[in-house]
């Protein structure tokens, strides 16, 4: 097992900012990678061919975003620390080492994206919750003082608009569809709602970068997110649950059991056959 250096040492304020920026960038990367990986499980299993293609296209967009964030994180890590991320092999960090050689506790994705795919309704709802959030996030990130994050956000926003439209339309179609589709998406709402709030609670690395205008204050996105959700749910004849206990911790590396299974499948090849390439 590679020994990885996940806690970047803090020695002065510039380094502190860089370390938080690394954590923040990894968080953004992990969110998109894990959701891409999960959605891609629908490949060949979508309800109809066109929608199979749609969800896998969305996966591909998210994977592309993840690659950009990982490449940037790798650049920051290699510049900032005398310790290569992988102490055992002394490899410099790359997008691949960050995706394939970090362990469960080093992933900073929110719990929402690691929730099981479930049925089509649950996958759709998870995508809607996340795309609605990501749309607002990237829109604001276009004003970040960090040039790299700004560029990735500007590029990705155009893709997320398509994801948000597609998932919104499906939420309406299922909610306001047949008795069974309505039942299924209602069940998905109940199952996923405990993982919504975490999106809007700033982790330490998010809070630390707000005053420099590098990160987006996610707490400030919640009202707009709720407004859009209410609008779509009203059309879908769905209710919004209230006073739901919120699970959190994913952004700090405390994950549900499910992430272990996702990583096991995703990382197996690189772990079993180190440095193998396509």
């Amino acid at each position: 097992m590679p020994i990885t250096n996940s806690e970047f040492p803090i020695t002065n304020s510039q380094l502190l900012i860089t370390n938080q920026l690394i954590n923040y960038t990894l968080h953004l990367a992990d969110n998109t990678l894990i959701l891409a990986q999960q959605n891609s499980e629908w490949c060949g299993h979508g309800p109809i061919l066109e929608q199979d293609i749609a969800i896998t296209n969305i996966s591909l967009d998210l994977l592309g975003q993840a690659r950009n964030f990982y490449q940037y994180a790798a650049e920051l890590i290699n510049q900032s620390t005398s310790q290569p991320i992988n102490l055992l092999t002394s490899q410099p960090a790359t997008e691949d080492t960050l995706a394939y050689l970090r362990d469960n506790r080093e992933f900073r994705n929110c719990l929402l994206v690691e929730q099981e795919n479930g049925d089509w309704a649950k996958t759709i709802l998870r995508q809607f919750v996340f795309s609605n959030y990501q749309y607002l996030l990237y829109e604001k990130m276009q004003d970040s003082k960090d040039e790299a994050l700004r560029a990735i956000a500007e590029k990705a926003l155009k893709e997320v608009i398509y994801h948000l439209k597609w998932s919104s339309e499906w939420v309406i179609r299922l909610g306001d569809g047949t008795e069974e589709s309505n039942q299924r998406i209602n069940k998905a709402v109940i199952e996923l709602w405990p993982y919504v709030d975490e999106l809007f609670i700033n982790a330490a690395y998010e809070s630390a970068l707000i005053s420099n205008n590098i990160s987006v204050d996610v707490a400030s996105l919640k009202n707009l997110w709720m407004q859009k959700t209410k609008e779509i749910f009203a059309e879908a004849t769905l209710g919004i649950p209230e006073n739901i206990f919120a699970h959190k911790g994913g952004k700090q590396g405390m994950h549900t059991e499910r992430l272990g299974y996702i990583l096991a499948e995703m990382q197996f090849l690189q772990r079993a056959y180190p440095n193998s390439v396509w």
């Binding site: 066109e50 293609i53 749609a54 893709e159």
Partner: peptide
Amino acid sequence: MISRFGSTACKAL
């Protein structure tokens, strides 16, 4: 339009 997502990321069906 049949689908907003087509055979590649850049195309719709």
